[in-house]
Amino acid sequence: MSNLAVGATTDPGHSSDDPSRRDFIHIAAIAAAAGGAAAVVWPFIDQMNPAGDTLALASVEFDLGKVMQGQQVTIKWRGKPLFIRNRTPAEIAKAVQDDNASMKDPAKDADRTKEGKQQWMILIGNCTHLGCVPTFGGGEYGGWFCPCHGSVYDTSGRIRKGPAPLNLALPEYAFLTDTRVKIG
């Protein structure tokens, strides 16, 4: 029978490593090309994320002596408005009293200020709906009112009415002294 085995005819069922080796080369080449393409695409996407100097401007210091009781000062932080409000005792009392009222995003007033510095309400001044700047003292809770779509916040910056889903956001901040605060 050995005289019949001569020739290049291969059994398609098995033997011959060639097809599977070729498949492997194809898969490996495609995988390498796809990985390479992805690696090249990423820098082109990531370049749109905040640049190093934008990230470096991330913290500011502020002298609280400039804000009288019952007033609010708005400063720019990371390109956004930052509300620094010196609340009156009546406003604080009202906010604490509402701690257990029904709210979309429940929070205690004490958790939104630093201990012993309850008069200082420091918030990011962008409505959590679509980012407009709410006006100081507006709305029926005496906190803030967003002119764009009518969201109402109380003096603790908690959302009480309107389309906004969340309370006004709290930035990261720390008191350096009694009258100096560092945000970011």
Binding site: P50, T54, R78, G79, K80
Partner: peptide
């Protein structure tokens, strides 16, 4: 953030 290229 990606669209803005910053925080605002």
């Amino acid at each position: 953030t990606w669209l803005w290229g910053g925080f605002a």
